[in-house]
């Protein structure tokens, strides 16, 4: 069944069309002046303005390695992160810590630790799976480079971004 929608009855002024046009022009110029006075929220001007201060605590940025309060590498090269990583971005070459070292009982530390930031999907599974709490997703998001090689973060770079995190895992301390 056809539904009849009646056309609205226009008044004389509306039929003249000009008042409508002028009303529209006033609306647009109001917006223009508001923008000029800076009262409108416009797009953030990215490189100059950044949203960094508003990033939430759970923000997942670049994955990094962290050291503990004794400047010891937390990573023990268990390779769990390498195995769980969905895009296989992590490559670990395990190495041994000599027996007479201060941290000899830790037994292993990575000889090389590489995260390919082109592959990384920032899922955070590495952080979740790490038994030593050695890998963390920091708030860095602008990871750029001019070549593929530059986009692979090696151990040095990872520690540089990661820094130190104190008092999370205490099982390797002297007292235990």
């Amino acid at each position: 069944m056809a539904i009849v929608v009646n056309r609205p009855k226009l008044s004389f002024l509306e039929n003249l069309y000009f008042p409508g046009i002028i009303k529209g022009l006033i609306i647009t110029i109001k917006h223009a002046f508001k923008s000029l006075r800076g009262e409108t929220h416009v797009t953030m001007q990215y490189p100059e303005e950044k949203w960094d201060a508003h990033l939430p605590d759970y923000y997942r940025g670049a994955p990094t390695l962290v050291k503990d309060e004794h400047e010891r590498e937390r990573c023990v090269s268990c390779q769990l992160c390498e195995f769980i990583c969905p895009p296989r971005a992590i490559t670990i070459t395990p190495g041994e810590i000599p027996k007479d070292d201060k941290w000899g009982k830790v037994e292993k530390a990575p000889k090389a630790f590489e995260i390919d930031m082109i592959r990384c999907i920032y899922c955070g599974l590495c952080e979740e799976v790490c038994p030593e709490q050695a890998i963390y997703l920091r708030k860095d998001y602008a990871i750029t480079g001019t070549s593929r090689a530059e986009m692979v973060h090696d151990k040095e770079k990872l520690y540089e971004i990661g820094g130190v995190r104190t008092g999370l895992v205490n099982k390797w301390n002297e007292l235990k």
């Binding site: 647009t28 223009a32 923008s35 929220h41 416009v42 797009t43």
Partner: peptide
């Protein structure tokens, strides 16, 4: 630029 400020945008700057 003018269309941008009318539409609450920034325009080429």
């Amino acid at each position: 630029r003018f269309s941008a400020i009318i539409q609450d945008r920034v325009g080429p700057n």
